[in-house]
Design a protein around this nucleic acid. Structure first.
Lengths: 195, 195, 195, 195
DNA sequence: CCCTAAACGAGACGGTACGTCACGTCTTGGT
DNA sequence: ACCAAGACGTGACGTACCGTCTCGTTTAGGG
């Protein structure tokens, strides 16, 4: 006896943007702890129902906000200069920089929390945010394999995780500084492992 | 104008155990979403104040519960058979098994959530839970380095993270299955990277 | 800057009837508490705006519904058999019966509630529902006065209220049963009072 | 699976008074339409839950507030000067004055509304507010009957309603002015009816 | 008989209040 | 003093309706 799905064609684009914008603002300003649907609605000048009509909760809003932001940021493809080590270093340094930026970091942190107690959302995050990024790296590794820079028996998905895993681990658990040197070290180890 | 610290000597051990036990039970039964201080108190047959008197919040309770559990599980030291690859495989397979066990997994998940918005707690988790585990592995790697199985220029902390990071990444983001094969693959890549 | 009045000539009679019917149905089925413009619209298969276009709110709808119903019921005139007591008894017994009928009772109850916080509506109810009924009785009393059955100094409006007031009081406050005997008793007292 | 009843012994008297006071203030200031549990809680400096813990809704709060007020006002007994007509006139004039006072009137109005869609509350109102008042009048009539001023066959309850009913009717339906003259007229008719 | 302006169904919108839940603090009485 | 119990002020939750406001789509009357 649940409501029928609302009609996306009638959706108010102005409200949608206001909500996503307000969510990002509040996250940056006050952190995840103080982020509430109520606050987002108030900041966006929107009724709460308008949020609940289109999203399952604040987690879903943050996801959309982040996807929106990244979509605007554009192409996740890695450069392919032929120098695998250099290309990966550039990519991982950029990722480190993102994790170090409090603004982006807050969003990712918030999303991770939601993800941990919402399997549905976790799937969405995996598919819409994570996979594209991982795939971009994998594509670069495939090119490297064709160039003979990677052993043919290496599982490329594992290789990708070898790059991101340690970084993610260190960030989440605050188990050490996130620097360019750290990124370079991970790349070196990975290249050695698969080369 | 805060209350003086309570006297730990007069602490009721029965209550402490009941609280930690109730926390673990509820986590296993209903998941983190429905875990509340109120529920823990009710289940433990304890006043809420007794929880707040000794812990800062449910995050701290979970941490203590997990530390308690692991302490009972005993020594985290790795075996040292001389065969680095085999020793690491055993360790990582055990870790994979832990992450796959819903009971332990739920606790870790909950703790990770709390950690993400409580720096204090994050430090505690790092020092009391994470570091001992990482150190145990690092100790094994140092032994391997002395045996000439690891290049002298390798940063052993990074090496440790090369083992746990991918696993943690995959678990948190549900980005693939957690199997013994997967553990073995990570170990192989890591050994190649540092050997 | 308000909308121009809608053109009554173009009004959809089918919708009007559906709305009034739905209102009465819902009142009878679920009571006043659960009566909402939204529910009326849904039940009537009508847009909410169609209700707000023609009525000021649910109170006005109920009023119209009741007027409609009573209009169909027809002429409120009292018989004049010459026997004042008998005529009044007949009238008051009928009124008691109305108040005892759950269907009519629910409507009246709802209308009374709306009336209590809407002066506009109160006036409408007084003029369109109440006055005709009271006037009919007053007319009968005037006839009785001409026949010398009523003292010339009696305020007939007060006399009318002497009949309806106790009944209304008892009904609203559930201060006793509403029976034919009760109606007869009121009539007897009133006739004594004015005779 | 409902909460156990709260323990009245631990009830905070300060909060109780603040809530009842705030309810009466808001009723007088803004009328019933704008009276909300939320507003009462805010005005009283009290959590909403504290209201819902002890009352079923705003209707019950108003009832308690009114009972409290009347209890403080004290003895509802009528004087018994031996002059029935005079005693009743005094009483009915006072009642008219109450209905004419916007402050008291607002409370009664609000209570009547709630009463109409809550049978439980209606019973409470009848027993705690209405009955004592009616009984006081009935007691005076009994005294008058013993004095031979009232016919022995008159149903005294009906006689009481003969006094209050017309007044209540006129007040609720705004069917004419509420003046001392009106009160006197009702008393005269009633005395004639029962004398 | 067609045109066009309205009324229409549907329902999204910014709001307000609902009644519930859990937070972390405070109070009471019991051991 | 610590405890079990639970009332308290606080504030967010997710829902229900309010009355207003678009959306296409009938529909009815004047040209």
């Amino acid at each position: 006896m649940s409501r029928p799905d609302p009609d996306p064609a009638r959706r108010n684009e102005r409200s949608r943007r206001a909500i996503l914008g307000a969510a990002l603002e509040l996250l940056a300003e006050t952190g995840y702890r103080d982020l509430s649907v109520e606050a987002i609605a108030a900041r966006a000048g929107v009724g709460k129902q308008t949020i609940y009509r289109w999203w399952r909760g604040k987690g879903a809003v943050i996801l959309d906000a982040l996807v929106d932001q990244l979509t605007r940021a554009g192409d996740p493809a890695l450069p392919d200069t032929g120098d695998l080590r250099a290309d990966l270093r550039g990519m991982l340094r950029a990722t480190v920089a993102e994790f170090a930026d409090p603004r982006l970091s807050a969003t990712t942190r918030a999303l991770t929390i939601e993800t941990l107690s919402d399997d549905d959302l976790a799937g969405q995050v995996r598919d819409r945010l994570l996979r594209p990024q991982l795939t971009a790296v994998r594509t670069r590794l495939e090119s490297a394999r064709r160039a003979g820079q990677v052993r043919p028996d290496v599982d490329l998905d594992q290789a990708v995780e070898l790059l991101f895993g340690p970084l993610y681990h260190r960030w989440l658990l605050r188990n050490g500084p996130l620097t360019d040197d750290y990124a370079d070290g991970i790349v070196d180890l990975t290249v050695t492992a698969i080369g």
